[in-house]
Design a binder for these strands. Structure first.
Lengths: 118, 118
DNA sequence: AGAATAGGTAGGCGATTCCCTACGCGTCAA
DNA sequence: TTGACGCGTAGGGAATCGCCTACCTATTCT
């Protein structure tokens, strides 16, 4: 969030854009399942040149989705899930659109207003 | 999903990329809160030229986030939340990273493996 | 039929994305 | 201290994005 729990549009843009790439989602998954790791360990899973992965890591850093901790000549990357929690918050007001549909209510709910952020 | 509940990377790319734009998120919100609407009603909320909004609607359509129903010379757009439900599914395996942290467990969980899709 | 309305498509333009190869910088080993 | 290692940055190139102004089609109103 930017100020008081309010997520700026620019930050949401960065987070969603960071997630809009299979390599970056795979990195997040590796950090989630394998814990904090140096760049080499991550790079071993991909075909691309290592500097390209470095750029993906920068995108993830700028989105706040990972953090780095220097240890000798390595950079240990760690998953930072806070932005994902905000994505979940963003999703909340949409939930009724698939939960209610499953209950067979169909299009009945398409006419009742509501309100929240973004 | 592509085949059996499995979301393809390409589809995830399209959905996240569609969400990575403030105008498109605003459109989804308008459809969520205001129900199905023709393009004019949506366009009234934005400064950009109408053809630009048309292109945004195409991106949302290609991501499966909206559908259109023709009514006379109008196109009524409707929110389709299924891809958002898949985003929520994608988020699930990450939840413990912010839920546990709130409980003060901190970095203790960064070393236990796991597994799922994408 | 002719004009107006709703909305998509074509094509152009600057900015950004994603990949690459080269290179620079700090750290550890000989 | 010299070399190898770990990683980031620079810069270039093809593709895509997001916006615009024309323009075209389909429908509805006179």
């Amino acid at each position: 969030m930017t100020a008081a729990g309010v997520r700026g549009e620019a930050e949401a843009d960065r987070v969603f854009a960071a997630l809009a790439n299979a390599t970056r989602r795979a990195v997040l998954r590796l950090l989630r399942d394998g814990g904090p790791q140096p760049v080499q360990a991550l790079a071993a899973h991909f075909d691309m040149a290592r500097p390209s992965l470095s750029e993906h890591l920068k995108v993830l850093r700028d989105a706040g989705l990972v953090s780095e901790q220097r240890s000798g000549r390595q950079r240990i990357y760690r998953l930072e899930a806070a932005p994902l929690a905000e994505v979940q918050d963003w999703l909340h007001p949409y939930e009724r659109f698939w939960r209610d549909r499953l209950k067979g209510l169909g299009e009945l709910l398409d006419r009742m207003p509501d309100d929240d952020a973004t």
